[in-house]
Simulated assay, not measured.
Amino acid sequence: MTPRTVPAARGDRRRWVTRGHLVAAGLLTLAFVSPVYLTIVNAFKPQDQIIRDPAAPPAPPTTHNLTDALARSDRIVQIGLTNSAVTVVASVLLIIPLGAALSFWLSRRSARLRRIVLAGFAAGLMIPPAVVLLPTIRVLAFLHLDHTYPGLVLADVGGGYLSFAVFVYSGFLRSVPVEIVEAATVDGARGLRVWWTIVMPLLRPATATVAIFLSLWIWNDFMNPQFILGPLHGQTITTGIYLSVGQFSTDYAQLFGVMLLAAVVPVAGYLALQKQFIAGLTSGATK
C-alpha cells in the first residue's frame, strides 16, 4: 500500500464509522419514538382498525376513544389524574425545599463530611426500589400510614428522589460564588434567610430540572401506588391504566384513549418549564 492510499483508506473507514453511528442513532431514535407514535395514532382509531393494523394512521380519525374513557362509570381517568397530580405536587413541594436546604447546609461543611453524607445519598440512588419496598410498607404500617396517600407521599420523599435532588443541588451550588453568601452574612442575614432569599432564587434552573425529573418519575411510578395504596384503597393514573387491561379481553381503543389522556399532563408541564430545564442542564455542564 502506497503512502497516498493510506489516508484514503482511513477516510473511507471514518465514513463507514460515521454512517454506522447514524444508522445506530436512527434505530435507537425509532425505538424510543415508536411507542409514542402507536399511542397517538391508536388513540384516534376504532377497535377493529387497531387489531387489523396498529401502526397504520387512523382513517378516518375519531375522538370516541377519549370521550369513552372520560365517560367510564368508575371515573378511572378523572380519579387517577387527580390523585396522581396531588401526589406529584405534594411530593415535589416537600422534596425541593428539603433537598435545597440540605445541599446548602452541606456546601458550608467540611469536604470530608460532605463526601460521607453524599455517599449515603448515593446508596439511596443505587439500591433498587423493589429491595426496600417491603421495609417501607412495614414502617408505614407501624405509623398507621399504609393504604393512605400521605404514606405514599412520605415514601416518595424518603426514597431515592430526595437523593437525586441533593445531588443536583449540590452540583449546582458549586457554581454559586461564596462571596454572595458571605456578603449576606456580613449584612446580618441568618442561615435560613440567606438560603431562602439569596440562594434559592439562584437555584431556579436547578429547581426546574429537579421538578421536571421528579414529577415524571413520580407520575409514572407504578410499584409504590400499587403496593402502598393497594387496589382497593386508591389509585393513580398508572394503576388505573393497569386496571383497564382486562384478564380475558381488552378494549384497546378505550385503553389507548386513557393512555393519551394520562400523558397530556406531564407533557404540558414539561413544555411550561422547558426553558428553565434547559438552563439548568447547560448551567450544570458549563459552570
Score class of each variant (00 low, 15 high):
T5A: 09
D12H: 08
R14A: 15
R15N: 00
V17S: 12
G26A: 14
T29I: 10
V33H: 10
V36I: 15
Y37M: 11
L38I: 02
I40Y: 03
K45F: 10
Q47C: 02
Q49H: 14
P60L: 11
P61E: 01
T63Q: 10
H64F: 13
N65A: 05
L66H: 07
T67K: 09
D68A: 15
L70D: 04
I79R: 13
T82Q: 15
N83S: 15
S84K: 14
A85C: 09
T87I: 11
V88R: 09
P97E: 01
L98I: 07
A100V: 03
A101Y: 03
S103N: 05
F104A: 10
W105I: 07
L106A: 08
A111Q: 04
A111K: 08
R115I: 05
L118R: 04
L125D: 09
M126N: 00
P129Q: 05
A130E: 15
A130Y: 15
I137R: 13
V139D: 00
L140C: 01
L145K: 04
D146P: 02
P150K: 10
A155Y: 06
G160L: 13
Y161A: 13
Y161C: 11
F164S: 12
V166K: 05
V168L: 14
R174P: 04
S175M: 13
E182H: 04
V186R: 09
V186P: 08
V186Q: 01
G191A: 14
G191V: 04
W196I: 00
I198Y: 00
L202S: 03
T207S: 11
T207A: 15
V210N: 09
S215R: 11
W217L: 13
F222E: 12
F222N: 04
N224V: 11
T238Q: 15
T238H: 04
S249V: 00
S249C: 00
T250P: 13
A253V: 04
Q254M: 05
L255F: 06
G257C: 08
M259W: 00
V265A: 12
P266M: 07
P266V: 06
V267L: 15
G269F: 10
L273A: 10
F277M: 12
